[in-house]
Design a protein around this nucleic acid. Sequence first.
DNA 1: AGGTTGGCCGTTG
DNA 2: TCAACGGCCAACC
Length: 106
Amino acid sequence: MFRADLAKLQSLLRKIPQGKITTYGLLAEALGVPGGGRYVGLLLKTNPEPEKYPCYKVIKTNGEIGGYSGGVKEKIRLLNADNVIIKKRKAVDFKRKIFKFNMPKD
DNA sequence: AGGTTGGCCGTTG
DNA sequence: TCAACGGCCAACC
C-alpha cells in the first residue's frame, strides 16, 4: 500500500504547475485517504525522492510550511523559487496558489 | 493571533 | 496484538 500510494503521490505532484502548491490533506484526499494528512507526510519522509518529484510544494492546510527532510529552510528556498512567497514560515496568498486535484475514484 | 489537546489514518517495532 | 510515532488537522482556550 505504501509503495502504491507513493506512486500516485508522485503522479499527483508532477501535475502541480510551477507557481502552485498543495496541502497534505488535499493530497490525502486525492489518494483516497481523507483525513490521512499524516499518512502523506509519512510517505514523504520515509520514502523521499526529491529528485523525482517536488515534495517541497506540499504545505499544511493553514499555510504553514510544515516540515522537510532536507530542512525547512531548504523547503522555503525551493518554494520561493516557485514564486511562492514565505513570510514568517507561512505561505503568502497560498490559498490562491493551491492546486486542486481530480479525485481519482478508481 | 498563538499555544494546547484530542483525534484522524497508516506505519513500524 | 499493542503502543508509539509522524513533514497533520480542527476544535478549544
